[in-house]
C-alpha cells in the first residue's frame, strides 16, 4: 500500500490526463442522461402532452393516488417477495452450479454445459413464457411427468400459493447461466497452489470447497449481489406479464404489471413517472445500504 501511494504521488502532476479521459463519458452522460432529468417534474404535474412540461402543477397528487389504490400494498408485498427470492436463489444456484461444474474432470464437457446453460439468456420472456405456459399447464409435460412418478398434479400457473414460486424458479432457471459463467471465471483464477497444499494437509474435496473456494469467491458474490440490489423493485415485468392471470393477482401482481394495467388504456405519464421516482428512491436507499454493508461486513468497496 505504501509503495502504491508513493508511486501515485509521483504521478500526481499527471492527474489532468485522467480527467481528460473522463471527459467524453461525462459529456455523453450529461447530455443524454442528466439533461432529460428535468422531465421528472411531470411526476408532480397532471401531464398533458399538449402543454408539455408546463402542465398543471398538482404536487403530490399522483403519489397519493397511487398509495391510495386499494391493491397497492399487496403489489409492494408481492414485488419484494418475488424479487428477494430471485436475488437469493440467483446467488445460491449459480454459485452451486459453478462449484459443481468446477469439480468436473472433463474440460470439454464443462465448456459444453456452460454454453448450453447460457443460451436461455438470449431468449426474450415473450417466447420463454409461451413455452412455459405450454409445459406447465395442468395437463402439460411437467405434470404428466409428475403423475408418472406418482405425484399429484400441481397447478403451477393457477394456484396463488404456487405461482410466485413458478415465477421465481423459472427466472432463476433462465438466468443462472450468466451467473455461473461469472463465478466459474472467478474460480479459475484461484491459485491452484492453495488446493495443492490443502491436499497435502489431507483436506477432503468438500473441505477444500468450504475453506478455500467459497471464501475466495465471496468478493465476487458480494459484487454481484450489490449490483443487483439496485434493481430489486423490478421483479420482472416481461416475465410476469406474460405468465400471470387474474386468479394469481393476489400473489403475482407486482408494481410494474399493476402500473401497466393502470395506465394501459392511455399513456399516464404522470403516474408512471411518479412510480419511477418512488422506485428510484427505494433503490437508492438499498444501494447505499448494500454499499455500507459490503464495506463493513466484507471490507469490500464497490465504487
Amino acid at each position: 500500500m505504501a509503495k502504491q501511494k508513493s508511486a501515485f504521488r509521483k504521478k500526481f502532476g499527471l492527474q489532468w490526463q485522467y480527467l481528460l479521459m473522463l471527459l467524453p463519458g461525462m459529456i455523453f452522460v450529461f447530455i443524454f442522461s442528466y439533461i432529460p432529468l428535468y422531465g421528472l417534474v411531470i411526476a408532480f404535474q397532471d401531464y398533458n402532452v399538449g402543454l408539455g412540461f408546463h402542465s398543471e402543477w398538482v404536487g403530490m397528487k399522483n403519489f397519493i393516488f397511487l398509495f391510495n389504490q386499494p391493491t397497492f400494498a399487496r403489489t409492494i408485498r408481492n414485488t419484494l417477495f418475488i424479487a428477494i427470492w430471485k436475488l437469493v436463489l440467483g446467488i445460491i444456484v449459480p454459485v452451486t452450479f459453478a462449484l459443481l461444474l468446477n469439480e468436473m474432470r472433463s474440460n470439454k464437457l464443462k465448456r459444453f454445459y456452460q454454453t448450453l446453460i447460457y443460451i436461455p439468456n438470449f431468449l426474450s420472456w415473450v417466447i420463454m413464457a409461451g413455452v412455459l405456459l405450454d409445459i406447465l399447464s395442468t395437463n402439460g409435460a411437467v405434470n404428466r411427468f409428475l403423475n408418472l412418478i406418482g405425484v399429484d398434479s400441481v397447478n403451477f400457473l393457477g394456484d396463488p400459493d404456487v405461482f410466485p414460486w413458478t415465477v421465481i424458479i423459472s427466472d432463476v432457471w433462465k438466468t443462472f447461466g450468466y451467473g455461473t459463467v461469472i463465478y466459474l471465471a472467478a474460480l479459475t483464477s484461484i491459485d491452484p497452489g492453495l488446493y495443492e497444499s490443502a491436499v497435502l494437509d489431507g483436506a477432503s474435496r468438500a473441505q477444500q470447497v468450504f475453506y478455500i473456494t467459497i471464501p475466495l469467491l465471496l468478493p465476487t458474490i458480494i459484487l454481484m449481489t450489490v449490483l443487483s440490489l439496485g434493481s430489486i423493485l423490478n421483479a420482472g415485468f416481461d416475465q410476469i406479464y406474460n405468465m400471470y392471470s387474474p386468479v394469481v393477482w393476489e400473489t403475482g401482481d407486482i408494481i410494474d404489471t399493476y402500473v401497466f394495467r393502470l395506465g394501459f388504456q392511455q399513456a399516464q405519464y404522470s403516474v408512471g413517472t411518479a412510480v419511477g421516482l418512488f422506485k428510484s428512491f427505494v433503490s437508492a436507499f438499498l444501494v447505499l445500504l448494500s454499499y455500507v454493508l459490503a464495506d463493513k461486513l466484507a471490507g469490500y468497496r464497490i465504487l
Binding site: 432529460p36 432529468l37 422531465g39 421528472l40 439496485g230 408512471g272 433503490s283
Partner: peptide, 15 residues
C-alpha cells in the same frame, strides 16, 4: 455522478 444516473432517468419524452 454515475451512480445517480444508474438509479434515475428522466423518461422517454424529454429524451
Amino acid at each position: 455522478y454515475y451512480v445517480i444516473i444508474m438509479l434515475v432517468s428522466g423518461g422517454m419524452i424529454p429524451t
